[in-house]
Amino acid sequence: MIEEILLLSDPALIPDLKAVFKDANPRLRLLSIDTLDTLNTLENRALGNTRLISFGGELIVPAAFLNRLGGGAYNFHPGPPDRPGRYPSCFFIYDNGVQSDGDHPFGSTVHEMAAQVDSGAIVATDLFHVPTDIDRLTLDALSFQSMLTLLRHLAPALATDPAPLPRIDAVWSGRATTQRDFEALCHLPQDITEAEFQRRYRAVGEGPEHALNLTLFGHRFTLNNRHAGPKVTVGGKIR
Protein backbone atom coordinates (compact mmCIF):
# COMPACT_ATOMS: atom_id res chain seq x y z
CA MET A 1 0.00 0.00 0.00
CA ILE A 2 1.28 3.45 -0.88
CA GLU A 3 1.56 5.45 2.34
CA GLU A 4 3.19 8.67 1.11
CA ILE A 5 3.42 10.75 -2.05
CA LEU A 6 6.06 13.40 -2.66
CA LEU A 7 4.67 16.18 -4.86
CA LEU A 8 6.85 18.24 -7.18
CA SER A 9 4.93 21.11 -8.75
CA ASP A 10 4.30 24.84 -8.73
CA PRO A 11 3.42 25.82 -5.13
CA ALA A 12 0.20 27.38 -6.40
CA LEU A 13 -0.97 23.94 -7.60
CA ILE A 14 -0.09 21.91 -4.51
CA PRO A 15 -3.41 22.39 -2.63
CA ASP A 16 -5.44 21.20 -5.62
CA LEU A 17 -3.13 18.24 -6.22
CA LYS A 18 -3.32 17.22 -2.58
CA ALA A 19 -7.12 17.33 -2.72
CA VAL A 20 -7.19 14.95 -5.69
CA PHE A 21 -4.94 12.42 -3.97
CA LYS A 22 -6.73 12.74 -0.61
CA ASP A 23 -10.01 11.93 -2.33
CA ALA A 24 -8.40 8.74 -3.63
CA ASN A 25 -6.76 7.80 -0.31
CA PRO A 26 -7.71 9.82 2.81
CA ARG A 27 -4.94 8.17 4.86
CA LEU A 28 -2.22 9.18 2.42
CA ARG A 29 0.66 11.39 3.62
CA LEU A 30 1.51 14.16 1.16
CA LEU A 31 4.75 16.15 1.18
CA SER A 32 5.50 19.06 -1.13
CA ILE A 33 9.03 19.16 -2.58
CA ASP A 34 10.14 22.38 -4.28
CA THR A 35 13.93 22.35 -4.10
CA LEU A 36 16.79 19.87 -4.22
CA ASP A 37 17.67 20.88 -0.66
CA THR A 38 14.22 19.76 0.51
CA LEU A 39 14.70 16.49 -1.32
CA ASN A 40 18.06 16.00 0.36
CA THR A 41 16.43 16.21 3.79
CA LEU A 42 14.91 12.80 2.99
CA GLU A 43 18.33 11.23 2.44
CA ASN A 44 18.08 8.98 5.48
CA ARG A 45 14.34 8.29 5.26
CA ALA A 46 12.93 4.87 4.37
CA LEU A 47 10.98 5.29 1.12
CA GLY A 48 9.70 1.77 0.57
CA ASN A 49 6.04 2.85 0.61
CA THR A 50 6.64 6.23 -1.01
CA ARG A 51 5.90 7.38 -4.56
CA LEU A 52 7.02 10.61 -6.20
CA ILE A 53 4.75 12.58 -8.54
CA SER A 54 5.99 15.52 -10.60
CA PHE A 55 3.15 17.57 -12.06
CA GLY A 56 4.85 19.84 -14.56
CA GLY A 57 7.70 20.26 -12.08
CA GLU A 58 11.10 21.52 -13.21
CA LEU A 59 13.25 19.88 -10.52
CA ILE A 60 15.55 17.17 -11.89
CA VAL A 61 15.54 14.29 -9.41
CA PRO A 62 18.84 12.38 -9.09
CA ALA A 63 18.75 8.76 -10.27
CA ALA A 64 20.01 7.56 -6.89
CA PHE A 65 16.93 9.03 -5.21
CA LEU A 66 14.56 7.60 -7.82
CA ASN A 67 15.98 4.14 -7.18
CA ARG A 68 15.09 4.36 -3.48
CA LEU A 69 11.36 4.90 -4.09
CA GLY A 70 9.37 1.73 -3.50
CA GLY A 71 6.42 3.13 -5.40
CA GLY A 72 8.44 4.58 -8.26
CA ALA A 73 8.16 8.08 -9.71
CA TYR A 74 5.94 9.54 -12.42
CA ASN A 75 5.99 12.83 -14.28
CA PHE A 76 3.01 14.62 -15.80
CA HIS A 77 4.54 16.33 -18.83
CA PRO A 78 2.69 19.30 -20.43
CA GLY A 79 3.17 18.09 -23.99
CA PRO A 80 2.66 15.03 -26.21
CA PRO A 81 5.31 12.31 -26.66
CA ASP A 82 6.72 14.05 -29.73
CA ARG A 83 7.43 17.19 -27.66
CA PRO A 84 9.88 16.19 -24.92
CA GLY A 85 11.84 18.78 -22.99
CA ARG A 86 11.22 22.35 -21.82
CA TYR A 87 8.50 24.73 -23.07
CA PRO A 88 6.78 22.24 -25.41
CA SER A 89 3.90 24.61 -26.13
CA CYS A 90 6.25 27.39 -27.28
CA PHE A 91 8.11 25.17 -29.71
CA PHE A 92 4.89 23.59 -30.96
CA ILE A 93 3.51 27.02 -31.90
CA TYR A 94 6.80 28.18 -33.36
CA ASP A 95 7.25 25.05 -35.50
CA ASN A 96 3.66 24.96 -36.76
CA GLY A 97 3.27 28.66 -37.47
CA VAL A 98 0.23 30.84 -36.94
CA GLN A 99 -2.34 28.41 -38.31
CA SER A 100 -2.95 24.89 -37.01
CA ASP A 101 -4.10 22.50 -39.72
CA GLY A 102 -5.26 19.85 -37.24
CA ASP A 103 -2.60 17.38 -38.35
CA HIS A 104 -0.41 18.04 -35.31
CA PRO A 105 -2.29 17.37 -32.05
CA PHE A 106 -1.04 18.54 -28.68
CA GLY A 107 -1.77 17.22 -25.20
CA SER A 108 -0.02 15.75 -22.18
CA THR A 109 2.01 12.67 -21.25
CA VAL A 110 2.50 10.66 -18.07
CA HIS A 111 5.72 8.67 -17.87
CA GLU A 112 8.05 6.93 -15.49
CA MET A 113 10.79 9.24 -14.29
CA ALA A 114 14.33 8.31 -15.29
CA ALA A 115 17.79 9.84 -14.98
CA GLN A 116 17.44 11.45 -18.42
CA VAL A 117 14.65 14.02 -18.65
CA ASP A 118 11.53 12.90 -20.56
CA SER A 119 12.88 9.48 -21.46
CA GLY A 120 11.05 7.08 -19.16
CA ALA A 121 8.42 4.58 -20.31
CA ILE A 122 5.06 6.19 -21.09
CA VAL A 123 1.99 5.07 -19.13
CA ALA A 124 -0.70 7.47 -20.42
CA THR A 125 -1.35 10.23 -22.94
CA ASP A 126 -4.18 12.64 -23.61
CA LEU A 127 -4.21 14.35 -27.01
CA PHE A 128 -6.49 17.07 -28.31
CA HIS A 129 -7.08 19.03 -31.48
CA VAL A 130 -5.34 22.41 -31.47
CA PRO A 131 -7.68 25.29 -32.32
CA THR A 132 -6.78 27.49 -35.26
CA ASP A 133 -4.79 30.63 -34.51
CA ILE A 134 -3.92 29.58 -30.96
CA ASP A 135 -1.49 31.47 -28.71
CA ARG A 136 0.83 30.15 -26.03
CA LEU A 137 -1.30 31.16 -23.06
CA THR A 138 -4.33 29.35 -24.43
CA LEU A 139 -2.33 26.25 -25.37
CA ASP A 140 -0.76 26.14 -21.90
CA ALA A 141 -4.20 26.35 -20.32
CA LEU A 142 -5.52 23.52 -22.51
CA SER A 143 -2.45 21.44 -21.73
CA PHE A 144 -2.96 21.95 -17.99
CA GLN A 145 -6.57 20.77 -18.26
CA SER A 146 -5.32 17.72 -20.18
CA MET A 147 -2.82 16.94 -17.42
CA LEU A 148 -5.53 17.36 -14.79
CA THR A 149 -7.77 14.92 -16.65
CA LEU A 150 -5.00 12.31 -16.60
CA LEU A 151 -4.28 12.99 -12.93
CA ARG A 152 -7.90 12.41 -11.90
CA HIS A 153 -7.98 9.23 -13.94
CA LEU A 154 -4.75 7.82 -12.50
CA ALA A 155 -5.00 9.14 -8.93
CA PRO A 156 -6.80 6.07 -7.45
CA ALA A 157 -3.98 3.76 -8.58
CA LEU A 158 -1.18 6.21 -7.82
CA ALA A 159 -2.48 6.86 -4.31
CA THR A 160 -2.99 3.24 -3.29
CA ASP A 161 -1.35 0.56 -5.45
CA PRO A 162 2.45 0.19 -5.16
CA ALA A 163 2.59 -1.81 -8.40
CA PRO A 164 3.93 0.09 -11.45
CA LEU A 165 1.34 1.59 -13.76
CA PRO A 166 0.88 -0.42 -16.99
CA ARG A 167 2.98 0.91 -19.86
CA ILE A 168 1.43 1.76 -23.21
CA ASP A 169 2.81 1.53 -26.76
CA ALA A 170 3.51 5.26 -27.12
CA VAL A 171 7.21 6.22 -27.30
CA TRP A 172 9.12 9.49 -27.14
CA SER A 173 10.25 11.06 -30.40
CA GLY A 174 12.07 14.22 -31.41
CA ARG A 175 14.86 16.05 -29.63
CA ALA A 176 14.18 17.22 -26.09
CA THR A 177 14.21 21.03 -26.04
CA THR A 178 16.26 22.74 -23.36
CA GLN A 179 16.37 26.03 -21.47
CA ARG A 180 19.16 27.10 -23.82
CA ASP A 181 16.93 26.40 -26.84
CA PHE A 182 14.21 28.55 -25.31
CA GLU A 183 16.60 31.41 -24.57
CA ALA A 184 17.85 31.28 -28.17
CA LEU A 185 14.26 31.46 -29.41
CA CYS A 186 13.67 34.53 -27.24
CA HIS A 187 16.81 36.33 -28.44
CA LEU A 188 16.00 38.31 -31.58
CA PRO A 189 18.66 38.74 -34.28
CA GLN A 190 19.20 42.34 -35.36
CA ASP A 191 18.22 41.57 -38.94
CA ILE A 192 14.98 39.75 -38.05
CA THR A 193 12.14 40.01 -40.56
CA GLU A 194 8.65 41.05 -39.55
CA ALA A 195 7.35 37.55 -40.34
CA GLU A 196 9.95 35.88 -38.10
CA PHE A 197 9.29 38.42 -35.32
CA GLN A 198 5.57 37.69 -35.39
CA ARG A 199 6.28 33.96 -35.36
CA ARG A 200 8.49 34.21 -32.27
CA TYR A 201 6.24 36.76 -30.60
CA ARG A 202 3.32 34.39 -30.95
CA ALA A 203 5.30 31.51 -29.49
CA VAL A 204 7.01 33.21 -26.53
CA GLY A 205 6.11 36.93 -26.41
CA GLU A 206 3.37 36.96 -23.80
CA GLY A 207 4.14 37.58 -20.17
CA PRO A 208 7.04 39.12 -18.24
CA GLU A 209 8.77 35.76 -17.78
CA HIS A 210 8.73 34.91 -21.47
CA ALA A 211 9.65 38.21 -23.13
CA LEU A 212 11.60 38.49 -26.34
CA ASN A 213 14.88 40.36 -26.16
CA LEU A 214 17.62 41.72 -28.39
CA THR A 215 21.16 43.04 -28.03
CA LEU A 216 22.25 46.35 -29.54
CA PHE A 217 25.73 47.84 -29.14
CA GLY A 218 26.51 45.54 -26.25
CA HIS A 219 23.28 46.25 -24.35
CA ARG A 220 20.46 43.74 -23.86
CA PHE A 221 16.90 45.01 -24.24
CA THR A 222 13.74 43.15 -23.18
CA LEU A 223 10.40 43.56 -24.92
CA ASN A 224 7.88 45.46 -22.79
CA ASN A 225 4.81 43.71 -24.07
CA ARG A 226 2.02 46.26 -23.70
CA HIS A 227 0.01 44.80 -26.55
CA ALA A 228 -0.87 41.58 -24.69
CA GLY A 229 -0.49 42.90 -21.15
CA PRO A 230 1.41 41.28 -18.30
CA LYS A 231 -0.69 38.10 -18.22
CA VAL A 232 0.91 34.77 -17.50
CA THR A 233 -0.45 31.26 -17.08
CA VAL A 234 -0.19 29.79 -13.57
CA GLY A 235 -1.83 26.45 -12.93
CA GLY A 236 -3.69 26.58 -16.20
CA LYS A 237 -5.29 29.91 -15.31
CA ILE A 238 -4.48 33.21 -17.02
CA ARG A 239 -3.49 35.82 -14.45
Rank of each mutant, 00 (worst) to 15 (best):
residue 3 E to T: 14
residue 6 L to C: 06
residue 7 L to H: 07
residue 10 D to R: 01
residue 13 L to Q: 07
residue 13 L to T: 04
residue 14 I to E: 10
residue 15 P to Q: 04
residue 16 D to L: 02
residue 16 D to Y: 02
residue 16 D to V: 01
residue 16 D to K: 06
residue 19 A to M: 13
residue 20 V to N: 08
residue 23 D to S: 10
residue 25 N to D: 09
residue 27 R to K: 14
residue 28 L to S: 12
residue 28 L to Y: 10
residue 29 R to N: 12
residue 30 L to D: 15
residue 33 I to R: 01
residue 33 I to S: 00
residue 33 I to G: 00
residue 34 D to P: 01
residue 35 T to Q: 12
residue 36 L to R: 04
residue 42 L to D: 03
residue 44 N to H: 09
residue 49 N to A: 14
residue 49 N to D: 09
residue 50 T to A: 07
residue 50 T to H: 03
residue 51 R to P: 02
residue 52 L to H: 03
residue 55 F to G: 01
residue 56 G to A: 07
residue 59 L to G: 03
residue 61 V to Y: 10
residue 62 P to L: 05
residue 65 F to S: 04
residue 66 L to Q: 05
residue 67 N to I: 03
residue 67 N to H: 11
residue 67 N to K: 14
residue 77 H to I: 03
residue 79 G to I: 05
residue 80 P to M: 03
residue 81 P to H: 09
residue 83 R to C: 11
residue 83 R to E: 11
residue 85 G to A: 03
residue 86 R to C: 06
residue 86 R to W: 12
residue 88 P to H: 06
residue 88 P to E: 07
residue 89 S to V: 05
residue 95 D to L: 04
residue 95 D to E: 15
residue 96 N to W: 12
residue 97 G to T: 09
residue 98 V to H: 11
residue 102 G to L: 14
residue 103 D to M: 06
residue 103 D to Q: 10
residue 103 D to G: 07
residue 104 H to G: 04
residue 104 H to T: 05
residue 104 H to L: 02
residue 108 S to A: 15
residue 108 S to R: 01
residue 110 V to E: 10
residue 110 V to M: 10
residue 111 H to P: 05
residue 113 M to P: 06
residue 113 M to T: 05
residue 116 Q to N: 02
residue 120 G to L: 01
residue 122 I to D: 01
residue 124 A to E: 03
residue 125 T to N: 02
residue 126 D to R: 00
residue 133 D to C: 06
residue 136 R to C: 07
residue 139 L to P: 14
residue 141 A to S: 14
residue 144 F to K: 02
residue 147 M to Q: 13
residue 150 L to K: 03
residue 153 H to P: 01
residue 154 L to A: 10
residue 154 L to H: 08
residue 155 A to Y: 05
residue 155 A to N: 09
residue 155 A to H: 07
residue 156 P to D: 12
residue 156 P to Q: 14
residue 157 A to D: 09
residue 158 L to K: 13
residue 158 L to Y: 14
residue 159 A to G: 11
residue 159 A to C: 10
residue 163 A to K: 00
residue 163 A to G: 00
residue 165 L to F: 13
residue 166 P to W: 14
residue 170 A to P: 13
residue 171 V to T: 15
residue 172 W to S: 13
residue 174 G to V: 14
residue 174 G to K: 14
residue 175 R to D: 15
residue 175 R to V: 12
residue 177 T to S: 12
residue 177 T to H: 15
residue 178 T to E: 09
residue 181 D to L: 13
residue 181 D to Q: 13
residue 181 D to C: 11
residue 183 E to P: 06
residue 184 A to W: 08
residue 185 L to Y: 13
residue 186 C to R: 15
residue 188 L to Q: 09
residue 190 Q to D: 15
residue 191 D to Q: 11
residue 192 I to Y: 05
residue 192 I to C: 05
residue 193 T to C: 12
residue 196 E to T: 05
residue 197 F to E: 00
residue 198 Q to N: 07
residue 198 Q to T: 00
residue 199 R to D: 02
residue 201 Y to T: 03
residue 201 Y to V: 02
residue 203 A to C: 10
residue 203 A to F: 10
residue 203 A to M: 08
residue 205 G to A: 02
residue 206 E to R: 13
residue 206 E to N: 12
residue 209 E to I: 04
residue 209 E to R: 07
residue 213 N to G: 09
residue 214 L to R: 09
residue 218 G to F: 15
residue 220 R to V: 13
residue 220 R to M: 10
residue 226 R to W: 09
residue 226 R to H: 15
residue 228 A to E: 13
residue 228 A to F: 12
residue 230 P to T: 11
residue 234 V to T: 11
residue 235 G to H: 08
residue 236 G to Q: 04
residue 236 G to P: 11
